[in-house]
Design a protein around this nucleic acid. Structure first.
Lengths: 144, 144
DNA sequence: CTACAAATTCAAGTCGACTTGAGGTCAAGG
DNA sequence: CCTTGACCTCAAGTCGACTTGAATTTGTAG
């Protein structure tokens, strides 16, 4: 089993070595050992990194990503919570598709201000839900 | 035309007054005037705020959002660039859908480590592209 | 054996998006 | 007329995710 040093991992993943150390510090990845001072990673770390990158682009924090796909390969959170995350993503996908349509429309529409364009406003109505007045503080990222 | 003071806007949008001031400072929204010191907003600000919120959940910076939907209603960037953003969103939608499938799978699969599950790894392969070695610094957010 | 490039640690810095706090202002009600 | 409470400004602080820099510590090549 071929071990990779940090520069190889960095090369192949496109992630800076400093970020890799940061991820290890935060417990998202693990190095299998050291040669001297130098970390050695197993090749599976590349898959984990794909997952981390993916999670980040979806807007999850490193903390959440760790909770969803523990570096040992087991989630730290319940199936319930995972399903909730999946549903969040369903909504997120819809919102993004809506925004994409709006942007595409803005790019094509000749109305002087898109806010005056009825088509645009219709898209807004679909995509941009307003909060129903009782706004909550988001502060329940869960304990680990 | 009914004007709203900042607390009404905050209430109806679910966005903190401090954030509204911040958005105004950054030029994402505009207050129509003042009564004494107090800002007065036109009702259209609520639509703009929906758009801002939507853009944020899509991962755009305030700066980018401003460029895409100027507070005056006209984008600061070319149709070309807008179309590129729409295409980025197309990819983002796909990635998110992929991640959602993975999470859903993790929630249901009984494999001890999802990395050992062939189904999961297949999903990973689809969703989690690795960068093709020549990693670039992302630093071209464009000038305004 | 020595020099050197590549890693390492640890502290401090950066960036975006706000929030918080101190001290000031003003329109409206009593 | 005077008090209040909502809003104001401006500076500083916070949080997450890294990056940067200075001072080491090797494994390997010459």
């Amino acid at each position: 089993m071929k071990l990779l040093d940090i520069s190889e991992v960095s090369q192949q993943s496109g992630i800076a070595a400093s970020a890799l150390r940061h991820y290890e510090e935060k417990g998202l990845i693990t190095s299998l050992g050291r040669r001297g001072l130098k970390r050695l990673f197993g090749p599976e770390v590349l898959d984990q990194l794909s997952l981390i990158t993916l999670g980040k682009t979806a807007g999850f924090s490193l903390y959440e990503i760790k909770a969803m796909f523990g570096s040992d390969g087991r989630p730290y959170i319940s199936r319930e919570t995972l399903k909730k995350k999946a549903e969040d993503l369903d909504r997120q996908v819809e919102r993004l598709a809506g925004l994409r349509d709006m942007i595409r429309h803005v790019a094509d529409c000749s109305a002087p201000s898109h806010m005056e364009c009825p088509k645009f406003r219709k898209l807004l109505r679909v995509g941009g839900k307003r909060k129903p007045v009782g706004a909550k503080k988001r502060k329940n990222i869960g304990q680990l």
